[in-house]
Design a protein around this nucleic acid. Structure first.
Length: 579
RNA sequence: GCCGAGGUGGCUCAGUGGUAGAGCACCUCCUUGGUAAGGAGGUGGUCGUGGGUUCAAUUCCCAUCCUCGGCUCCA
């Protein structure tokens, strides 16, 4: 804890030093705000000219001078009104704004060298303590995070207590870039996006389609095994449906424009739930049937602003692994536990072992329903979480407008977290669709409804999966599991036979019969991250066997094809994520 | 959407006010080689798109689309 605090202090001080360097190099630049953040620090500046990469170098050099000069950080206090006036006089309108909103009558001012800043502190003793830092990038950022206000220039940097920590961090960034799923998608020939098709619309190539199909068929089996009924619903629907659901009123910014069919407006669906509820409503349901669990790999389209699109992680057309549970109120808590455990099992199957779990509660302003119902639902979710024994945090106000939710973020191989699973309680749709069930006393009653997704969307999940494994997918998820390579033409027929036998055994295999040296073939197949490469020369052919090389340059030696097949079949199971 | 940076053969990238180049990939030929790149030759691009300036634009200007780094928003 102490370390975390001192790192925060160090980074915050680094932000001050950066602001000092910037205002000295570029007079007239207004400073806004410069906090420490999870991985470093930033400072927002207002200056008409954009900062360039060369500017960053200059600023960093200047910072090193300031560090060398070792100015002490000194703290003083002054009346708020005086501070506001002083900042206004200097033209520092952002600082004046912050100062004027501070509730105390006095504000604290930190000074180091010639740079004075309104600041809560604390800081390191002097600028000389900030030794290990690096400026990283420039980006735009809205003043106060408000898209209707000024666009400022944000310079990001990072600082650490030791040179080694800094080096490790920079290495981690490099590693993350190598794992970028967009690069892997290209290198492994999994998917692409195309201008002519449109941004945020994914084209799945043959290998990507195999990966998706593996996940989908496995997901379906998993859901059927867990008492879900699979549904299929259309991609477009009459606008009327979304008027009933309320999406037209509350979500239209994210919906594509209507298209007219025989004089009636239709919409591409942004959600599957209304359709699932329509299926529920096709007949009366007894309490004996509940909980009813519907699931669909439902492809939806949502308009996303062009600037937010990001590979597979943020797209405009995506397939949710959607599910809706209709449950009588008294079984809600039990159902939440069941879904939660199912989500964890699903994530574990894909090799994700670390989680951050959040209970997101009622938003301050925009919400439907009664506060007392919210409190009841939040309590149910929280009780369920407590019973699972997992640690969780409260995300106050982070719920959807229609109900509280539980979010599971997974941590990938290099420690980044991603939101995938979500379990959401819904106050809204049961009312809007007027869904009911017949309770044990024979009366109509209103059931509760849970929306849930275990992977979130297939697109995002595959993106995360690729980054987690750096493209080296587990055997059961590898589009190509085995590559067969002959050494020269003499083993062509033999290898072809091996290839066919593997195919017949249900193994996904390719035959690299190109007229290339074996080293070349090994290199290329290894770069495709294929789990096993089988090499056969005359030696292997003569004894009816194959030389097996496992991913990661592991020589498993020579074995018979039968031995190899049974080894692969043994390991080719969902949840076995290591070779 | 906003701020900034970009879009050059399938991929990664050079380059220029006088209609383009490398490596890899691809094709052909030679080579039949034992665990991460054998050799030679060849095909391939109206330099994102649409306007404008100019004798001349891939290069300069404007618009537009898309991509990238962020911001706001989000599965």
């Amino acid at each position: 804890m102490k370390n975390e605090q001192s790192l925060d202090t160090l980074r915050h001080s680094a932000a001050h030093i950066m602001a000092a360097a910037v205002t000295e190099l570029y007079p007239g630049t207004k400073v806004a705000i410069g906090p420490s953040i999870e991985e470093g620090f930033y400072y927002d500046f207002d200056r008409p000219e954009p900062f360039t990469v060369e500017d960053l170098e200059k600023i960093e050099t200047k910072m090193r001078e300031i560090v060398k000069e070792n100015h002490p950080f000194t703290c003083s206090s002054m009346p708020k009104a005086e501070a506001v006036k002083e900042f206004q006089a200097k033209g520092e309108k952002y600082k004046a704004e912050i100062a004027s909103e501070i509730e105390d009558d006095n504000v604290s001012i930190y000074k180091s060298g010639n740079f004075t800043d309104l600041c809560r502190g604390p800081h390191v003793a002097s600028t000389g303590e900030v030794q290990h830092f690096r400026l990283l990038s420039v980006a735009g950022a809205y003043w106060r995070g408000d898209s209707s206000r000024e666009m400022l220039q944000r310079i990001y940097g990072t600082a650490f207590l030791t040179e080694q920590d800094l080096k490790d961090y920079l290495l981690k960034i490099e590693e993350a870039q190598k794992r970028d799923h967009r690069k892997l998608g290209k290198d492994l020939d999994l998917f692409s996006v195309n201008d002519a098709v449109g941004g945020g619309l994914i084209l799945w190539h043959p290998k990507g389609a195999v990966l998706r199909d593996l996940i989908e068929s496995n997901w379906k089996k998993f859901h059927v095994d867990n008492d879900y009924e699979l549904l299929l619903t259309p991609h477009i629907a009459s606008e009327e449906l979304f008027r009933i659901s309320g999406h037209l009123q509350t979500y239209s910014e994210n919906m594509y424009a209507p298209m007219e069919i025989e004089g009636k407006p239709f919409r591409v669906k942004p959600m599957n739930c209304p359709m699932h509820l329509m299926i529920y409503k096709t007949k009366l349901h007894s309490y004996r049937e509940l909980p009813i669990k519907y699931a669909e790999l439902g492809t939806v389209y949502r308009f996303e602003k062009s600037g937010v699109l990001h590979g597979l992680l943020r797209v405009r057309g995506f397939t949710q692994d959607d599910g809706h549970i209709i449950v009588q109120p008294e079984l809600l808590e039990q159902e939440v536990i069941t879904v939660f455990e199912m989500a964890i099992n699903c994530l574990k199957m894909f090799g994700f072992e670390d989680y951050e779990i959040y209970l997101a509660t009622r938003p301050e302003k925009k919400y439907v329903g009664e506060i007392k119902d919210w409190e009841k639902a939040e309590a149910s979710l929280e009780n369920a979480l407590k019973k699972t024994g997992y640690k969780y945090e409260i995300d106050a106000g982070g719920g959807a407008f229609y109900g509280p939710k539980i979010d599971i973020k997974i941590k990938d191989a290099i420690g980044r977290s991603w939101q995938c699973s979500t379990i959401q309680f819904d106050f809204n749709l049961p009312e809007r669709f007027d869904i009911s069930y017949i309770d044990s006393s024979g009366k109509k009653a209103r059931p509760y409804m849970i929306h849930r997704a275990l992977m979130g969307s297939l697109e995002r999940f595959i993106g995360v999966l690729l980054e987690h494994y750096a493209g080296a997918l587990p055997l059961w998820l590898s589009p190509v599991q085995v590559a067969v390579a002959n050494i020269n033409e003499e083993q062509y027929e033999y290898c072809k036979d091996v290839y066919h036998k593997l195919r017949k055994s249900g193994i996904r295999v390719t035959f690299d019969d190109r007229n290339e040296k074996i080293g070349h073939k090994i290199r290329e197949n290894a770069m495709q991250k294929i789990p096993y490469i089988l090499v056969a020369g005359n030696k292997e052919k003569d004894i009816n066997s194959v030389a097996v090389r496992a991913r990661g340059n592991k020589d498993l030696g020579v074995m018979t094809l039968e031995q190899f097949i049974s080894m692969v079949q043994e390991k080719n199971r969902p949840g076995i994520n290591e070779l």
